[in-house]
């Protein structure tokens, strides 16, 4: 589905965002992209929509055309106030499908809002919503475009525990290729069977999430750690083996 080879990108001020990223993601996989601040996670995400263009190769479902990429890959940005810019929730969710000129916009808006349990808020203005609600609507704005791949940037940032849990539950019901960019390791453990560890613009580890999170020295070397008292072995015991395509790892 996603195929990146030797992806490199440097910002105009000389900061290196990506330093040769190789990543392959199969259809239906759920992959967490983990890494400390400044590792290049968001830069990678922007590449998936051709909002930034570096050197190297990047295709999604065989294409690298900007317009096609934006239809295939739905980005949910970290700050929902950036993502929700229309006067009402309904118009915001309709924005993508209207740009795609699909015929069944209304039905798509309904379906997307129902999927994130925000149907009753369709006629509210975004500024009247709580952060958790805004984030759910932000996901709906992308779901309405029916992308093949959903990419979320720090979906759990600044949420209280209950809102965070509800968001995870919502995400669990979404059946698509999922890329979660985060440094919330328990979230990755809960949602994704595979994780990719990004550090200083490179993929430094790629494998089953639970194995990767159990490797404390590796996490520590890249400024990541599990929350104090977090018991990974409990997750190991309760983890239900999902029948998804096996990860095809490709390290640096």
């Amino acid at each position: 589905m996603i195929d990146a080879r030797g992806l490199r990108f440097a910002y105009p001020n000389g900061v290196v965002g990506l330093d040769g990223v190789d990543l392959r993601v199969q259809e239906g996989e759920r992959v967490a992209v983990l890494g400390p601040n400044g590792a290049g996670k968001t830069t990678l995400m922007l590449h998936l929509n051709a909002l930034l263009k570096g050197t190297g190769e990047l295709t999604v479902a065989g294409t690298s055309d900007a317009k096609a990429l934006r239809a295939l890959v739905g980005l949910v940005f970290q700050d929902p106030d950036d993502q929700l810019f229309m006067p009402t929730v309904r118009e915001d969710v309709a924005f993508g499908p209207l740009n795609q000129r699909v015929p069944d916009v209304e039905a798509r808006v309904e379906k997307a809002l129902r999927a994130v349990r925000m149907r009753d808020f369709a006629d509210r203005a975004p500024h009247q919503l709580s952060l958790g609600q805004k984030r759910r609507v932000a996901i709906a704005t992308v779901l309405a475009m029916d992308p093949k791949v959903l990419v979320l940037d720090e979906p759990s940032a600044n949420l209280d525990p209950r809102t965070r849990r509800e968001l995870i539950e919502t995400l669990e019901t979404i059946d698509r290729t999922l890329l979660v960019v985060s440094h919330d390791l328990p979230l990755a453990a809960r949602l994704c069977e595979r994780s990719v560890l990004l550090s200083a613009g490179r993929v430094v580890a790629d494998g089953p999430t639970l194995e990767l999170l159990a490797d404390e020295p590796l996490l520590a070397a890249h400024d990541l750690e599990l929350p104090e008292g977090f018991d990974l072995t409990r997750l190991l015991r309760t983890a239900s083996p999902r029948s998804r395509p096996a990860a095809s790892a490709s390290g640096p």
């Binding site: 934006r70 239809a71 118009e91 209207l98 740009n99």
Partner: peptide, 23 residues
Amino acid sequence: ERAERVHLAMLARGFDERMPRLH
């Protein structure tokens, strides 16, 4: 900076200089 991020978010959802209208 927010304006720049909003613009990116609009492009990501296929914005092409025209504001679409629902009904």
